[in-house]
Design a binder for these strands. Structure first.
Lengths: 283, 283
DNA sequence: TGATAAGATGAGTCAAACTCATCTATTTTT
DNA sequence: AAAAATAGATGAGTTTGACTCATCTTATCA
């Protein structure tokens, strides 16, 4: 290249700030360096870029043209760089509130310890999935999802607070919280299959539903009944002795957690994130 | 700047060419330098830009994004630089065909000798005046033009070929070529004033008109008559003894040559061009 | 009129950028 | 199947151009 890019950067800054001194401050250089760069530029291009009016400078017509182009060009490059730097130092994962609150957030610090240079953001709700460098973890129908995208197939069981006595299914009414997804395309929690597998029926059972598993789990933890929910969400609570199981038989479901187009996340950080997710969801 | 612009240039080229080797050739470097630059970039941004597949490389998703931005950005800057380089090494002047043919073109070599680093283009006709770095020299009405824009006020006289005998105004008919501008806004050549100043009238004079002074002058040089035209156009021909005057009295006119917004041409080269024009038109 | 401030200029310094030598992994040739 | 060729990675050594310092010029301000 016949003119140096650093000289152009110096020029761009000087043109924008209207002063060699300010440009020097911006670029952490001396005004002398800016002056050298610009006279170098001017002699190589054989064009005056600034009028020198002793204590101040003004762009010539040619200078103004070049300033526009360099400003636009460098801004374009700089903003892409900024995006790269972001991509290099933050990883972002979006999921359902239940998974976030019960599984991801409690495990967040572990990720930070293994990857101190990265900061992790966990978001729930109406996340714009088109955002760059955001990995969505969704709940879906394992029969409809590409098998390679699946992180964890769900099974379901009944859980209760640590203080609860095991339910007596035959005599008194048992309150069970379960979930009815707002999204009707999702398979329902396999309550019937679970009852069959455990030799039970719906008599003596009072069903209450929420649209998120989190709420039923919270009710169960508060001792207000039992919850029929996914084993993924409860594994941490079981380990922390906040919930218990009662020797019942868990049943598989068609539900699964998956990352759409999992294979397409090809960056270093996305890989670390996927490893962590796999770790966290599969015990 | 935390990442060097040269590294970005190396990356841009490698991304575009799809090979470190080709990028190295393009930038007159060794493939090693490209490799260093790119791994430097990758470690600073903490993002992989290429997949390394042993003997070839492919852009990662992040790499592709950066490549687009750097390509666009550098292209933008590069094209402005190209324009600057042009502005630095060619000067362009547009004028009427008469002035170009009789005055500017004959003096062109003198400019080249004084400014060997510049190449001069002289264009006539329907030049797009909005083109960059083109200086138009126009014929106008000195009463309607900003005085500071005027290069030369026109005066008129009668000229004939060197071989011609002086016209005998009283006896035989004298053929005089003169000009009727296509542009009716221009003042007419001051023939009546000239006749009055020289004590003549139109009897015994056969007037023939063209729409450009050049043609009348060519007729006169061919010995087909005399020409009533501007002294600016003929000064070179007089000096070369291709035309002669006959002791008549020249008369001033309202016509002038001028450069619109002369003061706005502020580049080094435009200044050299204006000096030359002034020199050439004013003897 | 002296003080300050912004930039120009020239010489010297230092680190970033480049090359060279060597190595690895893959593809092509014989 | 071995040998040659090719593309890139890696580390150490070298060079050059980008930067600073000292000094000078010119204009503005008190």
């Amino acid at each position: 290249m016949q003119v140096s890019l650093q000289a152009l950067k110096a020029f761009e800054s000087a043109a924008r700030r209207g002063s060699f001194k300010l440009a020097a401050e911006e670029l952490s250089l001396t005004p002398t360096a800016i002056s050298h760069h610009i006279s170098n530029l001017e002699s190589r291009l054989n064009v005056d870029l600034f009028y020198r009016q002793a204590r101040r400078i003004t762009l010539t017509e040619a200078g103004a043209k070049l300033a526009k182009a360099t400003s636009d060009g460098f801004r374009m490059i700089e903003s892409a760089l900024e995006e790269m730097r972001m991509a290099g130092k933050v990883v972002r994962v979006a999921s359902t509130s239940s998974l976030a609150a019960l599984v991801l957030i409690p495990a967040q610090h572990e990720f930070s310890q293994n990857h101190p240079e990265l900061s992790m953001e966990i978001t729930t709700g109406e996340a714009l999935e088109s955002q760059s460098y955001l990995m969505p973890v969704r709940l879906g129908d394992s029969r409809a999802v590409a098998p390679s995208d699946i992180i964890r197939a769900e099974s379901f069981d009944v859980f209760g607070a640590h203080s609860m006595k095991p339910p007596v299914w035959s005599t008194e009414p048992v309150t069970i919280f379960t979930t009815k997804w707002k999204n009707r395309a999702l398979p329902e929690p396999p309550l019937d299959a679970w009852l069959a597998a455990n030799g039970l029926d719906t008599s003596n059972i009072v069903l209450k539903t929420f649209d998120q598993e989190l709420f039923g789990i919270q009710q169960a933890m508060a001792g207000n009944g039992f919850v029929f929910c996914s084993t993924t969400l409860t594994q941490g609570l079981l380990k922390a002795d906040l919930l218990q199981q009662f020797g019942t038989q868990p049943v598989a479901s068609d539900l699964c957690y998956y990352v759409p187009n999992k294979h397409s996340y090809d960056t270093r950080n996305a890989h670390a994130l996927l490893c962590w997710l796999d770790n966290v969801l599969n015990q």
